[in-house]
Simulated assay, not measured.
Amino acid sequence: MPSRPPVPPFTHESAVEKVLRAENGWNSRDPEKVALAYSPDSEWRNRAEFLHGRERIVEFLTRKWNQEKDYRLIKELWAFGGNRIAVRFAYEFHDNSGNWYRSYGNENWEFDEDGLMRRRIASINDLGISESERKFFWPLGPRPADHPGLSELGL
Rank of each mutant, 00 (worst) to 15 (best):
107 E>I: 00
111 F>I: 03
141 G>E: 10
103 S>N: 11
48 A>I: 05
141 G>A: 13
108 N>G: 14
27 N>E: 06
153 L>D: 05
153 L>S: 13
40 P>Y: 00
47 R>V: 05
83 N>G: 07
64 K>L: 11
93 F>M: 07
114 D>H: 07
155 L>C: 11
118 R>G: 07
88 R>S: 12
100 W>H: 13
12 H>R: 08
45 R>D: 09
151 S>E: 14
139 P>R: 15
122 A>W: 06
50 F>G: 00
140 L>E: 14
60 F>R: 05
114 D>N: 10
131 E>N: 04
6 P>Y: 01
103 S>A: 15
14 S>W: 06
151 S>C: 08
125 N>I: 10
56 R>G: 07
136 F>W: 09
148 P>E: 04
134 R>V: 04
19 V>Q: 08
5 P>C: 04
140 L>F: 10
57 I>K: 13
100 W>R: 08
142 P>L: 11
7 V>A: 01
135 K>L: 15
113 E>H: 13
131 E>A: 14
51 L>H: 02
94 H>I: 02
6 P>G: 04
49 E>H: 06
118 R>L: 14
33 K>R: 05
72 R>K: 15
131 E>K: 14
48 A>N: 13
1 M>Q: 04
145 A>N: 07
52 H>W: 01
8 P>D: 02
150 L>N: 01
3 S>V: 12
2 P>T: 07
11 T>W: 10
99 N>C: 06
95 D>F: 06
138 W>F: 11
105 G>S: 06
50 F>A: 00
59 E>H: 07
126 D>L: 13
68 E>G: 04
130 S>W: 05
127 L>V: 03
33 K>C: 05
155 L>A: 11
114 D>T: 14
130 S>E: 10
110 E>V: 15
39 S>A: 13
36 L>W: 08
134 R>G: 14
89 F>V: 03
96 N>V: 14
37 A>M: 06
36 L>V: 12
128 G>P: 15
5 P>S: 05
111 F>R: 07
113 E>R: 11
129 I>W: 13
53 G>V: 07
123 S>G: 13
133 E>T: 03
146 D>W: 07
24 N>S: 00
73 L>W: 06
71 Y>T: 03
117 M>A: 15
137 F>A: 15
152 E>A: 12
25 G>P: 01
142 P>M: 12
37 A>S: 09
58 V>G: 04
14 S>H: 07
108 N>L: 15
43 E>V: 12
8 P>Y: 05
112 D>S: 08
102 R>A: 08
21 R>M: 11
62 T>A: 02
153 L>E: 09
103 S>T: 05
86 A>G: 11
74 I>G: 00
151 S>A: 14
40 P>D: 03
128 G>F: 13
77 L>W: 02
149 G>V: 00
7 V>T: 06
40 P>G: 04
36 L>N: 08
47 R>I: 00
52 H>K: 11
18 K>M: 09
83 N>Q: 10
153 L>F: 08
61 L>C: 04
151 S>M: 12
74 I>L: 09
85 I>P: 11
76 E>M: 04
